[in-house]
Computed example of a mutant assay.
Amino acid sequence: MNRRLRTISFGAIPLLLLTGLVTFDHIPGTSVSLTVPYAAEGPGPTFNTLGEYDGKQVVDIQGTELDPTTGNLNMTTVSVRSNMTLMQAMGRWLFNKDTLVPIEQVFPQDQTEEQVTQANQEAFSTSEASATIAAMNYLHLPVSTKVAQTVDGSPAADALQEGDLITAIDGDSKATPAQVVEAVQSKKPGDEITLGVERDGQQLEEKVTLASNPHDDKTAFLGASMEAVPGGGISVDYNLEDVGGPSAGMMFSLAVIDKLSPGELTGGKFVAGTGTVDDEGTVGPIGGITHKIQAARDAGAEVFLAPADNCAEAASEAKGITILKVSTVSDAIDQLTKYNNGEDAATCS
């Protein structure tokens, strides 16, 4: 706070420039208001992925026995405020430690606020799917390939339906989405491929004659988009609303692993973190790391899991909280285990 007040004392020129960027919003029947072309980013709410939200499990797993869990594995968020007056913007910066960023960084000029929100929600859904598959892969549990959509007029449209599970390719039971794509690409247009399919609990065999790819007539084309889902009758659902973006992936994945494996990843502690995750469990960097650490610390977390690529920035918030450096889901579990056992763990400091 004192540092920011000192900054204001020497920051009259930037303040005047910011004032000069004020825009006028006139709402019929009301007085004219002044807004600045900036958004304020600050600590957002945190959610325990091992607990409940609005009466439902944040990570709801059905179809198998679950291992009891304690402690917290909190995902963290960044709050964004826009359409602020000059005084509101300066107040957020002075008294709330928010970061002021050009509004274009949050809402690009070529996109509406609704489009940005939709894109963030889609990224959130993608992160949920990747989190589940990363957890299944870590636990060596089966993964199935579900048909998400077929292209009208394609070979797949005549043989497959949305929701079908592909269980085999030419008699080979290894049928992940990548393996299906690889099998199709290994053939030529006009070749036949045999797909094992589970539909409504029935096992089917579909022989499909591949077409030419619309963009390359020398490449075989099936015409189906696929996604990996848990196998063995397990289902994983995520029950959080009004949250967007891909940065919850790692914490979701850890929650699935904690619920499906013996022991407790948290050691009964309050752990928080952030980071994207892909199907292979690689943890990627995110934005707003300092605000997320602040939110975790304010919520009572003693440990924060941070992507390795965010470590330099995260280190500036390492007061009153231990920040562990992680690069994969496996690494996050290893570092957390070391911390819980009192061993040397990799930290952002």
Rank of each mutant, 00 (worst) to 15 (best):
V229A: 04
T282H: 12
V181L: 15
A40W: 04
A314V: 06
T23F: 12
G223Q: 06
G245M: 05
D344N: 14
L336W: 03
T276G: 07
G44R: 02
T64D: 12
N239C: 01
T69G: 01
K259T: 02
T150W: 13
T126S: 13
A157T: 05
L141P: 06
G284T: 11
E264D: 15
V80Y: 07
A306G: 02
A224F: 10
M136V: 03
Q294N: 02
L100E: 00
E192R: 15
M87V: 15
G71I: 04
L15S: 09
D298W: 00
G233A: 06
E52M: 09
T176G: 12
T76N: 01
A308W: 09
N72V: 07
F124S: 00
I293V: 13
T30E: 12
A168T: 10
L18N: 06
G287T: 03
A119W: 06
T282Q: 12
P28D: 14
L210S: 04
Q115Y: 09
S235G: 11
T132H: 04
A228K: 00
K269P: 06
L160W: 07
D258G: 01
R199S: 10
C311W: 10
G267F: 07
D110C: 00
I333L: 09
V101K: 10
S82W: 12
V116L: 05
V80H: 03
I289C: 04
T49E: 00
S327F: 02
T145I: 02
M84Q: 09
N341Q: 15
A159M: 08
K188A: 12
D217I: 07
A148E: 14
D164Y: 10
M226C: 05
Q88K: 05
E192C: 00
